[in-house]
Design a protein around this nucleic acid. Structure first.
Lengths: 136, 136
DNA sequence: CCCGTCATACGAATTATTTCGTTGACATAC
DNA sequence: GTATGTCAACGAAATAATTCGTATGACGGG
């Protein structure tokens, strides 16, 4: 998927894999959590040590940070949710949508029809962007 | 990523993997093409047989169809571009954006600032959806 | 014909990702 | 202090995805 260096720090972390995204999603939702908490929040799927191993690898890749002060280490996403989401969206955009944001929006809305409220929110989002564009 | 059955037909094809998406993107762009054409259109990356093998696997998975009438077989995406894009967007939406189309739109726009024209097009897209919603 | 070129098929190696079994540390309850 | 339970750390296996080497057949030019 991408180059994999790994020294615990330095260069920007790689895009998370699918299983890693699932873990990040939990961390985004719950905030700093133990492996146990993350594992429980994930379905019944796989064993505890699988989740642990995954999170340890994520630590090496720099996708999460952990606080070892307690008996059960606390993990949290090392990048802001929005930042990671931006990268994921950008990656898919580039690879599967010819870089056309319009197509991606169309795809997203087709995949999951939004409520009127959501549509309104998206509209004001567009206003924001329009404004920002104007300023530059 | 998902269950992988594969018997050349019957159930709906799985989501394409990353390398497969790259190939689909080429097919979407060029229409029915030979392996050679697809391979050339792809970067310098890997060898010819790699692309061939990938496309053969995609055939088994039902992601592409091929016409063997000619010496060099012609491959094309078996589902409409829009359909596959919808699935990809929906998958990412569900896994990384809490199902919030708004967040995905935000991510996409942040990842790649859209032109004023694009924004306008997205707006009219929203109008479409609003209308459709009203009718139901 | 026979050869060089280009294509598919196939099998296996390589790499990436995910999973699990086992171990030792540590804490708490008894 | 000893049993019991939970945890992190490894290492290695299982699975998925990607890559490549080699075999073989079709084609066209000399």
């Amino acid at each position: 998927m991408a180059s994999r260096s790994h020294s615990k720090e330095s260069d920007s972390p790689p895009l998370p894999t699918d299983a890693e995204i699932a873990i990040l999603a939990v961390l985004w939702r719950l905030g700093a959590s133990t492996v146990r908490e993350v594992h429980d929040a994930l379905g019944k799927d796989s064993g505890y040590t699988t989740t642990l191993k995954l999170m340890q690898l994520m630590l090496e890749k720099g996708l999460v940070a952990r606080n070892e002060r307690y008996r059960s280490h606390l993990y949290e996403a090392s990048a802001a949710k929005e930042e990671t989401q931006r990268q994921l969206a950008g990656d898919l955009l580039k690879r599967a949508f010819e870089g056309s944001a319009k197509s991606l929006v169309l795809g997203a809305l087709a995949a999951q029809p939004a409520s009127g409220k959501d549509l309104a929110e998206i509209r004001s989002l567009l206003d924001e962007f329009e404004k920002r564009r104007g300023k530059k």
